[in-house]
Design a protein around this nucleic acid. Structure first.
Lengths: 337, 337
DNA sequence: CATTACTTTGCATACGTATGCAAAGTGATG
DNA sequence: CATCACTTTGCATACGTATGCAAAGTAATG
């Protein structure tokens, strides 16, 4: 059996006070005299006492836990995201109950776990949830925030990069460089990230009268590699390839290299995310930097506001980011001259 | 305020039974008649009742939570590890309280969290803990397992790849190919992984009368890149470089390429981990595959055994893994002939 | 019907903490 | 010393569940 942990009662006895007093010593903002506080603290540290978070959560109806669900994926971008969430939440006093989800949608099982442990909020990263799951959470008054995904059908908050606008600007950048044959390698087709990036990219170019070739990449290196081979073996080889994310773009980059094409002269490549690998000299990938810090900060703030019932407008929040120019695209014209 | 969640009492009233009966319905192995079970289940699902894991954990002294601490790091290997742990633990009915640690050692704050939430065990990945932290956990009877790290001073279990033997075999492989000028790029010098790999590598070669050049890489791509440049600009350029992990090896690979050296003719590179990126055609890195699935499985089993007080011998557990040969090393002689 | 053996249920209590309320303590003022 | 205002403390109870114990129910047997 597990050894029973020391409780407030034992500390109380040792310090010659009541259990209530011990509790008050560990509750910030309570009225305890300096003298007894010291006495209690001494007894507590002597016994190695720590307040039991479960009992505290039970009575205060506040667990200080947040559920974090993340889709398992090859993309190191989300590893970084996870790190920042964990740190950011802890700074606000929250702990993370973590779950990997293997499917595109969060499953019932994962939500059940969150409900049973009374998490105060849920963050869903790189995945969606079915509407009945959202309903369940809302019935229990547990706010949900989608990170880097959104859905018009679901009435929950979301924070993402303004993928549409970013892709639009990438298209503009490539077009201004003189590219007229352009291709887009998709991510997983049912993700809002991939869809928005495609729409932004195509909308800009369509307005300029340029048609975009689309190939499916599925957000994997292997998929993107094959897709790029298809593209680059065409009669009219594209001059520029925009990959739905950096992993996709790296697949395209390597595919081009495998065909002895030189970058950026023969073909130009742009990615999305600005993962660390993009900066590696061998890749030197031009890409769109998502402002992860800001996105995480906004997500956490929004979540905490909702937890505290400061109702926020349920509109999807968008942040912009910026283009990081590297060697996988040509130097801009002004510099060239 | 958060809406109060439905509790067993309300279900009991609706189903015309006592709260105890409701509890028994949700406790596997309890004696309840089929008829009342149905009645209760109906009422429960009508009200959307779920047992409160906190209250349950409080009274049963069993939270079904495991603390997982991981060092933040560039290495995608640990992202994979995290995924496998989460899945594996859930299969055993455990939930994950997750923490990132920014330092080489787990900090007091992280442990406090684990203690307060009464986790039943702690898994520490890619980091160590100070001995007084181990003491704290042991006093509370919470088992700890180090994953891919060990320490002779700390009396806790550990599971890792047999880094010494693996590095020894890598050295053998390179030596048999005829390499006589060899270099090792280290990881973070105070990690047992990097130390063991260095020792295994050097011990083998020393026995053969070959000296190894050591450069510091710090487990980062950038560090390894610089280290490799130092190595490759020497008068006597090494024929083979062994990187402390795959990220290190990839840094070396790219550094070699940047010097127009061809791989594996001019220089041969070997890594460690077999992350997905190693298989990418542009890298095609020979590397040591850690049997992650097995390592995770053993870790979880050992932990659960300890939780259930089936005392296991506290010896460090080692698993072997195997060499994955790719294009960054020469084909083996037999094939060459 | 009485007895026995067994299953099913309810009562009461326990887990470790927080908090409203009242009692006790402290110090200042007249 | 009496009064008042204020701080500090303890008592009792509540949070939602699990479980030992006894009571009630069921069925079988003589």
């Amino acid at each position: 059996m597990k050894k029973k942990s020391v409780n407030a009662m034992e500390v109380a006895k040792l310090a010659n006070v009541s259990q209530s007093t011990v509790s008050r010593v560990f509750t910030p903002g309570s009225n305890v005299s300096e003298k007894t506080k010291e006495k209690v603290m001494e007894a507590a540290s002597f016994l190695g006492y720590r307040p039991n978070a479960l009992a505290r959560g039970l009575i205060m109806n506040k667990t200080n836990m947040v559920g974090l669900a993340m889709r398992e994926i090859q993309n190191p971008f989300y590893h970084e995201v996870l790190g920042k969430f964990t740190k950011g939440l802890r700074e606000k006093g929250y702990h993370v109950l973590f779950v990997y989800t293997e499917n595109d949608e969060i499953q019932q099982e994962e939500i059940t776990q969150f409900l049973e442990y009374n998490v105060e909020g849920v963050i869903v990263t790189d995945a969606l949830l079915s509407s009945n799951v959202v309903t369940q959470l809302q019935e229990s008054n547990i706010p949900v925030i989608l990170f880097n995904r959104y859905s018009h059908e679901l009435s929950c908050h979301s924070v993402s990069c303004d993928n549409y606008s970013a892709a639009w600007q990438i298209a503009d950048y490539l077009y201004e460089q003189g590219c007229r044959r352009l291709a887009y390698i998709t991510g997983r087709k049912n993700t809002s990230t991939s869809q928005d990036r495609q729409r932004g990219f195509c909308d800009y170019l369509q307005a300029k009268g340029v048609k975009v070739i689309i190939e499916e990449g599925n957000y994997t290196y292997e998929g993107a590699y094959k897709a790029a081979l298809n593209l680059l073996k065409r009669n009219e080889r594209p001059e520029a390839i925009f990959g739905a994310n950096d992993i996709t773009a790296l697949g395209a980059l390597d595919a081009a290299k495998s065909l002895q094409l030189s970058i950026p002269e023969d073909v130009t490549v742009v990615g999305f995310d600005n993962i660390e690998m993009a900066a590696w000299p061998a890749n030197s990938l031009t890409t769109w930097e998502q402002p992860v810090d800001e996105m995480v900060k906004i997500t956490i703030e929004t979540l905490i506001n909702q937890i505290n019932k400061k109702q926020v407008d349920a509109k999807p929040k968008l942040v912009s980011g910026k283009l990081i120019k590297r060697d996988s695209t040509k130097k801009s014209k002004v510099v060239d001259k």
